[in-house]
C-alpha cells in the first residue's frame, strides 16, 4: 500500500445534536482518486467538507476524532486553517464562479495569497485553464464575465480556480451532477489527467462514473462508512449485501 496523504481516525461530526458522521476511519492515497458514494443525505458532503474544515463556518457544529494530513491532525488548535485550505482545495457541488472576469476568477487565489507579479499571474492562469481543459474555449475572452460561461464551462472554471494555487489535494463534490454527458466526459477525462499531479477525492451519485474514474471507493450509509476498498472490488465483489444492493442500483 502506498503512503496515505490524508486519513481519518474515528472521526465523528455533529450538526448541533445531529450525529451526521459516525466513527469514520479511512485514508486517501497520494495521486489516486477516491470516490465517495451513498444515498442522498448519508454524509458525503459533510465528510468532504470536514477534510478542509469548510464546516467550521457552519455555526453549532462539532467534531470528534482525527483527520491527519501530512502527519498532523488538522483539527489541532494551532493549525492554520487558511494555510490548510490552500493545500486542500475544493470544487463545490454547485459551480460558484465569482461575478468577476474569467481571468480574475482564476487569479483570485493567487491574488489573495499575495502574488502581485503580473506575468507570473498570467502564466499561472493560462496553465490552470489549460489544466482544466478550458483554455481553448476562453482564451479570447478572458476579460469577459465568468457568469456568461455555460454550466460545464463554469464548473471547469472552478476547477481551474482551485488548480491555480497548486493544492496537494482537490476535493470535488459532485462536479458533474448538473452537466450533460459530453461535459461530464470532459470532467472525467480531466480527473484522469489531474491524478498525475494531485490527490483527488470525489463525491458522485453516478455509479458508472465512480467505477470509471476512481481507484478507491467508499460507500456511506446514514452517516456510517459501510465499506471501503479498491473500486474494482467494491463494484464486482462487495463484501456486504448493503453495498452490493447500492452499487447494483437495487436501492438508493
Amino acid at each position: 500500500m502506498d503512503e496515505l496523504i490524508l486519513y481519518t481516525e474515528h472521526f465523528n461530526f455533529y450538526y448541533g445534536n445531529f450525529h451526521a458522521l459516525k466513527n469514520i476511519s479511512m485514508g486517501m492515497e497520494a495521486h489516486k482518486v477516491t470516490a465517495l458514494i451513498g444515498p442522498s443525505g448519508c454524509g458525503k458532503s459533510t465528510f468532504l467538507r470536514s477534510l478542509n474544515r469548510m464546516n467550521d463556518i457552519i455555526p453549532g457544529t462539532r467534531v470528534e476524532g482525527k483527520v491527519i494530513f501530512d502527519g498532523n491532525d488538522i483539527y489541532e488548535k494551532n493549525v492554520d486553517v487558511v494555510d490548510l485550505r490552500r493545500k486542500i482545495g475544493m470544487v463545490f457541488q454547485k459551480s460558484n464562479p465569482f461575478p468577476k472576469s474569467i481571468f480574475d476568477n482564476v487569479a483570485y487565489g493567487l491574488y489573495i495569497n499575495g502574488e502581485r507579479n503580473k506575468s507570473i499571474i498570467a502564466d499561472r492562469v493560462e496553465e490552470s485553464l489549460t489544466g482544466a481543459a478550458l483554455w481553448d474555449e476562453v482564451k479570447d475572452r478572458l476579460d469577459k464575465s465568468a457568469l456568461d460561461l455555460s454550466g460545464g464551462q463554469q464548473q471547469r472554471l472552478c476547477i481551474a480556480r482551485a488548480l491555480a494555487i497548486k493544492p496537494e489535494i482537490i476535493l470535488m463534490d459532485e462536479p458533474a451532477s448538473a452537466l450533460d454527458p459530453i461535459a461530464t466526459q470532459k470532467i472525467e477525462e480531466l480527473i484522469f489527467e489531474l491524478k498525475n499531479e494531485y490527490t483527488i477525492v470525489i463525491v458522485t451519485h453516478n455509479m458508472q462514473q465512480a467505477a470509471r474514474v476512481s481507484d478507491f471507493t467508499a460507500f456511506f450509509y446514514l452517516g456510517e462508512l459501510i465499506e471501503f476498498g479498491d473500486t474494482e472490488r467494491i463494484f464486482t465483489n462487495p463484501k456486504l449485501k448493503k453495498t452490493e444492493d447500492y452499487v447494483t442500483g437495487r436501492f438508493g
Partner: peptide, 12 residues
C-alpha cells in the same frame, strides 16, 4: 457560495 468559494481558496 461567494464566501465559501473564497475561503476554500485560502482567503482569510
Amino acid at each position: 457560495s461567494y464566501r465559501e468559494g473564497a475561503l476554500a481558496l485560502g482567503a482569510t
